[in-house]
């Protein structure tokens, strides 16, 4: 049962940051899709909830050819999924959102809330890291921006400091001849992934890999890049054998934890299969 708490409802970002600085034992709530579950399970019992859902100045999707994509903190999954600019420029994000949870959850939950929750099985992080996203955070004292890759610290733990909110996700315009793809493995469509893999490939010419990014979801405490597999691919002429080999390397590099749904060995196997498949998909997309 959810504990009693004091409810704070700021009207503006400034107010929100001030309130957040002022109150100890305060949790941010946006869509509540993750937070309320752990509150109901009694895992946390904060004294204050700071509701930012209605801070409209954080509700936006902006895009320009130079600066890329900017998604504000209160933007829902649904808004991202239905956005024309996202569809046109980051189809991998839309495909990921389509399979994230159910329509109801997407209508209310936010992509930034998902990142701040830092569940290693979350879908957005691997794709965004593969797209080289940055995350802007800020407190009453000021703002800072970091690579999303550096945002995750441990299971359900991020680099956010006391009083800091996630403000925005920034996704650069992909280089020409870049393809990005994501796939998760689950038993029920739209469940969280048992594992997931995102990959981005930038080609040099038609076959050669200029740069690759491979990000593994739920294969360790945080979304994890498979740097060895990325290095292996750099400069290679790409084909099915190369993808298979990269999959093997990625699976050796990760440290998934067994649970009732899948053994460690099986998870590693899935990583290698998914990596192979997703690299191929990204490659085909890069070739256009």
């Amino acid at each position: 049962m959810i504990n009693d708490f004091n409810y704070l409802k700021p009207g503006t970002l400034k107010e929100a940051l001030a309130m957040y600085a002022e109150h100890d034992d305060c949790k941010v709530i946006c869509g509540g899709q993750s937070l309320l579950i752990i509150m109901r399970q009694g895992m946390i019992a904060p004294e204050y909830l700071l509701d930012i859902k209605h801070v409209d100045e954080l509700n936006y999707i902006k895009f320009d050819k130079k600066g890329g994509l900017k998604i504000g903190a209160t933007t829902t999954h649904h808004a991202v999924e239905k956005s024309d600019v996202v569809k046109a420029n980051y189809p991998a994000l839309v495909a990921m959102e389509n399979k994230l949870a159910s329509i109801q959850v997407r209508n209310w939950g936010t992509i930034c809330g998902n990142l701040a929750h830092a569940d290693p099985a979350g879908d957005p992080a691997p794709v965004l890291i593969a797209l080289k996203a940055n995350i802007k955070v800020g407190s009453a004292k000021g703002e800072r921006t970091m690579a999303l890759d550096e945002f995750f610290v441990d299971y359900f733990e991020t680099a956010l400091q006391k009083g800091e909110l996630v403000l925005e996700i920034q996704v650069p315009v992909p280089q020409p001849k870049t393809g990005t793809a994501y796939q998760k493995f689950n038993l029920l469509e739209s469940d969280m992934g048992i594992v997931g893999v995102a990959a981005s490939i930038t080609l040099n010419g038609n076959k050669k890999c200029k740069e690759a990014k491979i990000v593994l979801g739920n294969a360790g405490p945080i979304p994890k890049r498979s740097k060895r597999a990325e290095e292996f691919l750099a400069g290679k002429a790409l084909n099915d054998d190369v993808f298979t080999e990269a999959g093997k390397i990625a699976s050796e590099e990760c440290e998934p934890v067994a649970d009732i749904h899948a053994s460690e060995e099986y998870r590693k196997h899935l990583i290698s299969v998914l990596t192979k498949r997703i690299l191929k998909k990204a490659y085909e997309e890069a070739r256009g």
Binding site: L187, L188, E189, S190, D191, M192, I260, H261
Partner: peptide, 11 residues
């Protein structure tokens, strides 16, 4: 109901 898997419409 996160870890106990029941068929949904999509399945």
């Amino acid at each position: 109901l996160v870890d106990y898997k029941v068929m949904r419409a999509t399945e």
